[in-house]
Design a protein around this nucleic acid. Structure first.
Lengths: 150, 150
DNA sequence: CTTAAGTTGAAACCCAGTTGCAATAGATTA
DNA sequence: TAATCTATTGCAACTGGGTTTCAACTTAAG
């Protein structure tokens, strides 16, 4: 389930520095891992990948960096319908929100962008007078392949 | 944040029994708590409430019953944008899906139904050929009151 | 009333994530 | 370039929601 590689690598780095945060070696490593990830990674996977670049890095630093990135709106946290226990997954925040579809049979995660989704968020903001900062739409069900092979 | 009391009490009980599951005293108690809840409860709150009706009940039984109800599609599990740590919240599955809006300032949870949401799910099913079983749309942001009082 | 299978409670366990704190290392200033 | 200030790191211990194991107990069926 490859993600669209839409932004130039290094975007997150420069984004953080411009916000006055210290750019440490560890943060650079973790940012690189998140930026170049081809699928949704959980904290343990990010740690493992980061250690291949910097063996001394600690899991605490990974957790702290992820929550920093989340607080600054640079990454999004996903649950993917809790199909893999209580793990959380992370992805670079996209320019345009998308929907995550989790197949309850094969476990595949697909993504989908939709005007209707954008319009729905607009409706919420207007009719509920609610200013949206983050949104997350996850659906669980059965993908086309799994429906066919049954 | 009262929830609409749209279904007759006892619905979950009869639903479960009709599926051939044993109706134990503990399950009846937990079902009653979930059915009569006026807001979203987490597992610990459900346990506390259940113990007021049946002091001997164990937290393991609460967890087991909640996952049973979830497996049977009778309740939905919510994260509410992880505003209260990693807790999960539960609500009786409504006839019609709704959106949860979590205010990042006051913590209030509001609900919203929308035709656009239903249409969006229809679009997903058609265009992605994905059969939806559960869906969850949570948004985090700032409610009208919190935006005003600033 | 018997019985077999489903369910419970208690204790131990698991594991993702957090906290406290001393040591370290970015960034800033001179 | 060196001194300094303060954010950040790593380690170890901890937290807490949720799970597993298994003997004892109920429920529903016969």
């Amino acid at each position: 389930m490859p993600l669209p590689q839409t932004e130039a690598p290094g975007r997150l780095q420069s984004e953080l520095m411009s916000r006055g945060l210290r750019m440490t070696h560890q943060r650079r490593t973790i940012l690189t891992v998140v930026e170049t990830a081809k699928q949704h990674l959980d904290a343990a996977q990010i740690l493992r990948q980061a250690r291949r670049l910097d063996p001394g890095i600690d899991r605490v630093t990974v957790y702290r960096t992820l929550s920093l990135l989340k607080r600054h709106g640079l990454i999004d946290e996903l649950d993917l319908m809790h199909m893999q226990g209580e793990k959380h997954f992370y992805e670079r925040r996209p320019q345009r929100d998308h929907i995550h579809m989790a197949c309850l049979r094969c476990g595949k995660i697909a993504e989908f962008e939709s005007d209707l989704f954008d319009r729905l968020k607009g409706q919420i903001q207007r009719e509920c007078r609610f200013h949206i900062v983050v949104s997350r739409l996850e659906v669980g069900g059965y993908c086309a392949e799994c429906r066919a092979s049954n």
